[in-house]
Amino acid sequence: MRDEDASAPVLARRLARVAGEGSWTLLKNTRVTVVRAGDVVVKAHPPETDETALAARLRLAAGLPGVLLPPASAEVGHVDGRPVTVWPAGEPVDPRDPGAAPWEPAAELLARLHAAPVDGLALPPAGGPARVVRAVALLDGLDAAYAAPVAVIREAFGTLPREVRTAREGTVARTERMDAGTAREGAAPPVTVPSPRSPDGGGPPRAWLTHGDWHLGQIIRYQGEWLLIDVDDLGAGVAAWDLARPAAWYATGLLDPAAWERFLGAYLAAGGSAVPTGDPWRELDVPARALTVQLAATAVAAAGTEGRPLDEVERALVSSCGRITRTAAAQ
């Protein structure tokens, strides 16, 4: 694709000019628009992005070498009124070769991220819980043909703790047994958080540096090493949310149990402290249920937008939401 390709979105063509002249590739065009030109990736964030929080996230990424991909520029630019960031390009995980997925390197990176000292850092709240709320909102207004799966997802959503169901961008959410700070209403600037441990050195973590939305699309190989990417949800929060998506895949039957064991085992072996060794589901239960709801809502919304029946994976996610509701009712 070249700059003069009139079929490309206007925003994408303008982002490509930020990267330079020559050929370029449109990598993503959803809530965010991402293009790659040569060794540079340019990303336009959603118009409603909190730019103060985004700038803080860029500084955090630059300050954790060997864990997070550092930005090519520490400045937030603008194209067509959208905040824009620029990054070095790397090699993503190959979706055609699931057996080669870097579960162990990813787990080790997350463990190192969760161990990063946070004293005195101005951190925006991690965006994991707010993504769940945003995904469920996508179900509003879908055709009546999708009424049954929508009802199942909304029922499962209703079983989640209130702090998750009411989370918004800029809100530090709490979940059962996992206190990430005091919930706040509305958007908020970056906040200075305390040490991840309670003052006496014991007890559960109070605040973490978390990725907020980790999956295999959020890791790339750059200059010979794997690094975490996509800082949109990076911040202070509950570290167990970073394990929630693979945990939800595993619980739904979409992730090979052997892959899950590799991932969780590598995380604990690397000193990851988001979950206890003996009973990881004590901390994973709420985030995994929430991510199941998020994945199901996103899938059904996409099917509704495209006007097609649910596929096998989408039906499995909705079925898992039904199990969440039945389990909650039985307790």
Rank of each mutant, 00 (worst) to 15 (best):
P125V: 12
G120I: 07
D311V: 03
P95T: 04
L68P: 11
E51V: 15
G307C: 09
V318C: 06
S320K: 15
G217L: 07
M1C: 04
V238P: 12
A55S: 15
P199M: 15
R14P: 00
T85P: 01
S7A: 15
D80N: 05
L26H: 08
V150I: 10
A6F: 05
W281N: 04
A247K: 00
R289G: 10
L26M: 08
G272L: 02
G212V: 07
T85Y: 03
D80A: 11
G253W: 02
G99R: 12
Q223F: 01
A100S: 14
L142F: 04
R174P: 00
D140I: 01
E91F: 00
L121P: 00
V191K: 05
G253H: 03
W214G: 03
A89S: 13
V35H: 06
A100M: 00
E104I: 01
E314G: 05
A135T: 09
P88F: 03
R96L: 14
T166C: 05
T305N: 07
R206Y: 01
V118F: 01
P276Q: 14
A290I: 05
G304S: 06
P65L: 09
G307F: 08
R59K: 13
P280G: 08
A19M: 09
V35T: 11
G202T: 15
A180C: 15
L234K: 08
A258F: 10
P71S: 05
A130T: 06
A239W: 07
T159Y: 03
Q294N: 12
L264E: 01
V133H: 05
E176D: 14
R262L: 11
D233Y: 01
V18F: 03
W249E: 15
P196A: 11
P70A: 14
L11H: 04
G81A: 02
A180Y: 07
A130S: 14
V191C: 06
A188G: 14
P309T: 11
E51K: 09
V172F: 08
T325P: 00
P65K: 13
A207C: 13
G212A: 08
V79P: 00
A248Q: 07
D285A: 14
T210F: 01
A44L: 07
L139P: 02
P194Y: 13
A296H: 09
A248W: 05
A266M: 02
A156H: 04
G212I: 10
V40E: 13
L142A: 06
G271R: 07
N29Y: 08
P88G: 02
R165M: 05
V286D: 11
A328D: 14
E283C: 01
E104Y: 00
P46A: 13
D232K: 06
P88E: 06
R245G: 00
A236E: 03
A180M: 01
D233E: 14
L209Q: 05
Y267T: 11
V32R: 14
P189I: 07
P95S: 03
D233A: 13
A302H: 12
A303H: 11
A207M: 10
P287F: 05
A107P: 03
I324E: 05
A270M: 03
L291V: 11
P189N: 05
W103G: 03
A236D: 06
V193W: 11
Q331L: 12
